[in-house]
Design a binder for these strands. Structure first.
Lengths: 135, 135
DNA sequence: CTGGATCCGCGGCGATACTG
DNA sequence: CAGTATCGCCGCGGATCCAG
């Protein structure tokens, strides 16, 4: 049963399937903030098969700006999804690699990819029908 | 094997696990745009156990503004996740209910909730460690 | 090759007031 | 009860230039 309760500290919490989802500090929202970005999911998929270098990722996602490539990588690193390894060669090369946490999440992401592919047509259809009714 | 290819129409496409993810019109991004919003996932969880009325949802998520409640519901309806039924009583009451598509997505969302709960601590820890190293 | 710094527009989201 | 209308903030993300 889902319900909203107040904890001792005055924190409001929603219980869902026995999992506490705080409204102020919600785990799901944290994860969605990490992976809900425009490029994050594609980036993780790009690292699915093994470590990749900066320019490899740039080629993998041709229409990402280099600013967002850098920022997305830093955010993923900050949250522990990937590691960043610098090789002091000349010119320098940097390698990005999924952590165990990142690989764990990759499994979830694959489910999402599959579901999206299967239901994309239905969503688009619903949207067209809705917009037609509005016009 | 993941790779970026060009289709006949000149559309750039990424093949992931055999699933085509267009860069211009990506199914996963569509889904994440639907569910990546600040309130969407909570809203779907709120409808998990059965149909709910506007004010019930408002009580379920106390700190949502009524503007965002309306907008989130309309977006979910537009994409086919929920239906909206108006009962012309006095005063009027409106019932929101998950569609088969919405219930299908709910299964995925539950996985996400579970994963988030299990790994939230690890993410927070990684973030603290990263920020400590930056300071 | 791998970034950092800066400028800026757009859209998500919140607050408030009003309505059938 | 269940919305609609308007305003304004702010952060995401793109473009461009610069650097080790």
């Amino acid at each position: 049963m889902n319900r909203t309760v107040d904890r001792a500290e005055g924190e409001r919490v929603v219980l869902i399937d026995g999992v506490a989802m705080s409204l102020d500090d919600c785990p799901v929202r944290d994860v969605l903030d990490s992976v809900g970005g425009k490029w994050t999911s594609l980036m993780i998929m790009g690292l699915a098969e093994g470590p990749r270098r900066f320019s490899q990722l740039r080629r993998f996602i041709p229409d990402i700006s280099q600013r967002m490539l850098t920022q997305t990588l830093r955010d993923l690193q900050r949250d522990g999804y990937i590691t960043r390894t610098v090789y002091p060669t000349k010119p320098p090369s940097v390698e990005y690699r999924l952590t165990p946490l990142g690989r764990s999440f990759l499994a979830l992401l694959r489910s999402l990819v599959r579901w999206s592919a299967e239901n994309h047509a239905a969503i688009r259809a619903a949207r067209r029908a809705y917009d037609a009714g509005e016009a």
